[in-house]
Nucleic acid binder design. Structure first.
Lengths: 219, 219
DNA sequence: TGATTATGAACGAACGATCATTCATAATCC
DNA sequence: GGATTATGAATGATCGTTCGTTCATAATCA
């Protein structure tokens, strides 16, 4: 879908190479930023871990801030690439919502480091870049919001506050990488998703008779 | 309730003075850490903002890390002081849950900076101190969990997964300072709480007939 | 009581370590 | 062989921390 375009100065011209190197560097940076924090991660750390020299990094980005921006932008881009895929071929509104929420949680689980980064280090971005990242986030949120709105239109959901309901779903999906340590006993991501849907759906479904938890109607 | 004891070296001996000065310094530090981040906030910043000298700070704490720990510990201590107050005199289980959840959200709203800090900067703590803070957090979570367990015992709630339900409540309460920017239009904290209870309660209540939203039975 | 001495809180310039960034040089590719 | 890409030692700025000093107040003395 709508991808964040990252216009960042590179000394190296070859686009293939730029793409490859940036990927290599950004992936490492993302992991290190998420585990040690942005400021405690040194360029040396990144260079060593990515098996490149310090100087090489500065051939592909202008400064350390660029790396943070690249990391966050790439995370959001991957969300808006992957989540819609999960909806392919599904037409039943309720199933689309379930699939979308599930995909959202799974993506958060897979891009664990990036999700944590978003919460922890957005503050270190420049105001303009923060705005870009937030807009990308909202763009991603809209994918799920649409499936909710469709459920309302189809009469599957009652006439609820779509924005707030979507917000709770998003927050809970984000919570998995951030707050799962609070849960005891530990749960698998699948158990977690099922449990959340059991909590979320009853308030939304139009007919309270429907038992949300077990239902798995495929279109 | 259970307070986190913070044993931190102080050159100054007078306990009254230590308390007063630490409060003055920690309050400033909390705000700056939350707005600029721990690493981007300099001791100079804190000294200037708190209208004390750099040297004075080092009379009351050993190093910058102490300030972060003090800030987080004080936040958690204030939660476990304030939340139980909201339950005083309420006996009806459902009302106790509502009051506790509301208090939780309100406290997060009031201690906005500290709540943000907890998510953003815990990583900068030493492992031992992180453990202390997390234990304090879980301790606080238990206050709400107990009101949920009581609702189950009283038959007001069905036999749900208490730990998971509590987790969702906590996450959503925490989300207010972190994620409210996603909501449009903006809502007041009271509208937010009411909206969340409408979403959370239907899955929990034993009799689906009860409309959770409006209900305001006082004991 | 007034003069003298002791205390410890407060100050902030100076130090030293860390770390992002640069750049002269080497390696590699076409 | 010339252009492009990679290297990492050297640089300089930033920032936590120290420590010699000041100063107000309290304690002691005569």
């Amino acid at each position: 879908m709508t991808q964040i375009i990252t216009e960042i100065r590179s000394i190296v011209e070859n686009p293939k190479l730029v793409h490859k190197r940036r990927r290599q560097i950004t992936e490492t940076a993302t992991k290190l930023f998420a585990t040690k924090g942005f400021h405690s991660t040194t360029i040396r750390d990144i260079a060593d871990t990515a098996k490149v020299s310090i100087g090489l990094i500065y051939q592909y980005v202008e400064d350390k801030d660029d790396l943070l921006f690249l990391a966050l932008a790439e995370a959001i881009n991957s969300y808006s690439r992957e989540i819609p895929k999960a909806l392919d071929g599904i037409t039943d509104p309720l199933e689309r919502f379930r699939a979308c929420f599930t995909a959202y949680c799974i993506v958060m689980n897979k891009n664990h480091s990036a999700a944590v980064l978003g919460y922890r280090e957005s503050k270190s971005l420049s105001p303009e870049r923060l705005k870009i990242i937030k807009m990308g986030e909202l763009e991603t949120n809209k994918i799920l919001e649409e499936t909710i709105a469709d459920c309302v239109k189809a009469g599957v959901f009652k006439d609820l506050d779509v924005n707030l309901f979507n917000y709770t779903c998003i927050c809970l999906a984000h919570s998995w990488p951030l707050s799962a340590w609070r849960l005891s006993p530990q749960r698998s991501i699948e158990e977690y998703i099922d449990g959340l849907l059991d909590i979320l759906l009853p308030s939304a479904l139009a007919s309270p008779a429907n038992e949300a938890g077990q239902q798995k109607t495929t279109a």
